[in-house]
Design a protein around this nucleic acid. Sequence first.
DNA 1: AAACACAGTTCCACATAATGGAACCACTTC
DNA 2: GAAGTGGTTCCATTATGTGGAACTGTGTTT
Lengths: 270, 270
Amino acid sequence: MNETKTTDAEIEIAGTGTLGKAMAVLEAVVMAGSPQRFTDIVQAVGQPRGTVHRLLSHLVEEGLLIQGRDLSYEPGLRLLKLAHRSWSGNRFRDIAEPHLLRLHELTGETVHLGVLQETEIIYVDKVESRQAVRMSSQIGKASPAYCTGIGKAALSSLPQPELMRIAAKMKFHPFTAHTHRSAAGLLAEIDEIRRDGHAFDREEHEKEICCVAAPIFVPEHDLVAGVSVTGPAYRVNMAQLAAWAEVVRGTAGKIEEEVRMRLGPGRNGR
Amino acid sequence: MNETKTTDAEIEIAGTGTLGKAMAVLEAVVMAGSPQRFTDIVQAVGQPRGTVHRLLSHLVEEGLLIQGRDLSYEPGLRLLKLAHRSWSGNRFRDIAEPHLLRLHELTGETVHLGVLQETEIIYVDKVESRQAVRMSSQIGKASPAYCTGIGKAALSSLPQPELMRIAAKMKFHPFTAHTHRSAAGLLAEIDEIRRDGHAFDREEHEKEICCVAAPIFVPEHDLVAGVSVTGPAYRVNMAQLAAWAEVVRGTAGKIEEEVRMRLGPGRNGR
DNA sequence: AAACACAGTTCCACATAATGGAACCACTTC
DNA sequence: GAAGTGGTTCCATTATGTGGAACTGTGTTT
């Protein structure tokens, strides 16, 4: 009868029965970034000790976690293996890749591809050097949507009610002096972005880092994403970024179009 | 009781109650590399339709899978996000990184770092260009141990009974003309590797690709790994590889030592 | 248009598998 | 040696997951 075991400010509430709890435990360990002791984990997930202990041992057996000699828990390699497959088999990324390379060639600066996931954007690709696209250290990284070029661009393509729903969930952390501090400012900027078709990041997430971004929106596939060209402020001023806006929009448009074509609506997988 | 049985028909047997089954379903979708239909998945995991259906919807709710308009299932982004964190927080990789960079500088060729996981090795880092270490497309990739330099080097540091146990599980697929076709040949080579302290890959996994590798062995932390320098056969002949053997061994040794130091003694070994 | 096949979804009686409180170590610290 | 801390195990209870079967919706055949 106790449906809501809502325990204070913990990691996450289980919504998916056993799996949900297991994932909450996994997340607690992985997101911590350092080996976690049993008690830490119990604390983090707010679940009874017996339960957590069993979940942990199951996760270890599955190779998702490994337990060191000092009994602490760390991420296992199964996650990496799974992620590699899901990355290299990602059709969206695959389609976008040549376009990202071309954009990089035109600008000479770092190009990012990111997907909106509720309130944050997750980078799925990056072109940095003159070399072939590779999984870089940024891949899989999650950044807040409200202070990144790709994030704001992606948000701008959402229908208003959806935008409001997501905006309501945001926590505005002031990373720099230019970071939006409330939804109001963000929403005002989103209006502009809708008109212009592109978004800027004026050192809002990291000092000395700017970018121009354009949205990629394919609602048929629930895909809300964006491309961006990023550079250090000392090398890339606003005029330069503005000059790149058009080609960034063009790239986003081409990716969007090709995704629509190649992932066409009613198709049988394989 | 970990049964990593990869028969042609079914993916894996659940050993961890509900979580095991959920992971088997997840793996079936991710490893397929293309969107999977419900029936395909049922077939792959060999579980009743009702069960699979519920597991799938839970996995979707958790963001581990996404379901397209055509009802097919694909990997979701949660996996990427988790993998990013577990990669960037990996202490072993972190410690090895500068050594890999140095080794790359000395040789000018691609440097790999891989960890042995039962019968396969999983790449956890790679230095390819003159740039900083980044997560490349190889990260998380799993290759068979018996036909890769790192794999054979890692195997060579195992105690004999453990080696035999793992060797017994291998399936020898003939990738090239030089690939070991049976355990006998592999074990004979392992003896040599133990003497020499390094292993070669003479186009055994991919045509035209060779490497020298050395083992990194830290039993206190259940770490069986290796470093390698890889190059195309036309540029890197056996004499060149042999000349690099010493510096590769040296790198491996330094990493091993530093891991022992920085990750402390593994407590009173049990 | 009826009949059929096939993929996906829902239902529900049933038993297995998860639950979590409490007791139990092992090892420090006061 | 008593109290504290961190991890592990036990086990009665029942909530959870199970899976066969029935149902729906679509497309294809006759």
